[in-house]
C-alpha cells in the first residue's frame, strides 16, 4: 500500500512524505528544498521549533526542548497524518 502523506508548509508549498521511511520531518522538508532552521537535530535545542496548524506527528527521539501545545520539533518527529505547518 502506497499511502504518502501530504505536508502543507507555510500556506503555500505542499510536499509528500512516506510514513514508512525513517526520515524525520526536518529531513523531508530539506529534501523538498524548504529553507529550514535547526541546530542540534536531535530534539534538545529547539531551534527548529515549528507551529503545527493541523494533523498529528509522532516522535522518533524524545524531545527535550520546550514546546507550547501547538508546537512541534521537526528534527525529532515524523508525520503521522497529513499535516499543515508553519516553519
Amino acid at each position: 500500500m502506497n499511502s504518502k502523506l501530504k505536508v502543507k508548509v507555510n500556506k503555500s508549498q505542499v510536499i509528500e512524505v512516506d510514513p514508512g521511511q525513517p526520515q524525520t520531518l526536518l529531513e523531508a522538508l530539506e529534501q523538498a528544498g524548504v529553507e529550514t532552521r535547526y541546530h542540534c537535530r536531535s530534539g534538545f535545542c529547539g531551534a527548529c521549533r515549528t507551529t503545527l496548524i493541523s494533523g498529528e506527528v509522532e516522535y522518533i527521539n524524545d524531545p527535550l526542548a520546550y514546546m507550547r501545545p501547538q508546537e512541534i520539533l521537526p528534527c525529532a518527529c515524523k508525520a503521522k497524518t497529513d499535516l499543515e505547518i508553519e516553519h
Partner: peptide, 20 residues
C-alpha cells in the same frame, strides 16, 4: 556549543513553566 544549547533549553523551560 552543544552543552550551551542544552543549558539554554533549561532556562527556556524555567521561564516558560513560570509564564504559562
Amino acid at each position: 556549543a552543544r552543552d550551551e544549547n542544552l543549558h539554554l533549553t533549561s532556562t527556556q523551560h524555567i521561564i516558560n513553566l513560570w509564564q504559562y
